[in-house]
Simulated scan of single mutants.
Amino acid sequence: MRIIITEHAHKRLRDFRQDKITTTDIICAARGIPGRIPTATRFRGFFAKSGRMFDIVAKDIENGRLVITIIGK
Rank of each mutant, 00 (worst) to 15 (best):
F47H: 12
R44E: 04
P38R: 07
I37T: 09
I3V: 07
R52D: 08
K73Q: 13
M1G: 07
K73M: 13
I21C: 09
M1Q: 11
K11A: 15
A58D: 09
R44K: 00
P38S: 02
P34Q: 08
V67I: 15
D25S: 10
G32P: 11
T69L: 03
I70Q: 06
R52E: 05
I70K: 10
E62G: 03
R31W: 10
I3F: 13
D60Q: 05
C28L: 04
T24V: 14
D60T: 05
N63L: 13
K49H: 13
R65P: 01
D55L: 01
C28H: 10
R52P: 04
G51Q: 00
M53S: 14
V57K: 02
K49T: 12
A58W: 00
I70M: 11
A9H: 07
G64C: 01
G72M: 01
T23V: 13
E62W: 10
Q18T: 15
I71Q: 12
I71Y: 06
M53H: 04
C28G: 03
I70V: 15
A30D: 01
M53G: 11
T39S: 08
A48P: 11
K59E: 09
F43H: 05
I71K: 07
K20H: 15
I61H: 05
R2H: 09
G64E: 08
R52Y: 11
E62A: 11
P34K: 15
T23M: 03
T69W: 01
G64M: 04
A29L: 10
I56A: 09
K59A: 08
G35N: 00
I26A: 11
D25A: 00
I3W: 14
A9P: 11
I26V: 12
G45D: 01
I68G: 07
H8A: 07
E7W: 00
D19T: 12
R12D: 08
F46E: 01
V67F: 12
F43G: 10
G45A: 04
I4Q: 04
V57Y: 09
K73E: 14
G32E: 00
L66A: 02
H10M: 10
G64Y: 03
T69R: 07
D55N: 15
T24M: 05
P38H: 08
A40R: 02
G72E: 06
K59D: 06
R2W: 01
T69Y: 10
D19S: 14
G72N: 04
I68E: 11
K49R: 14
F47Q: 06
E62S: 01
T69M: 00
Q18G: 12
F43C: 06
D55M: 02
R42L: 03
I33P: 10
R14E: 13
F54A: 03
T39C: 04
H8D: 10
I5V: 04
I37W: 06
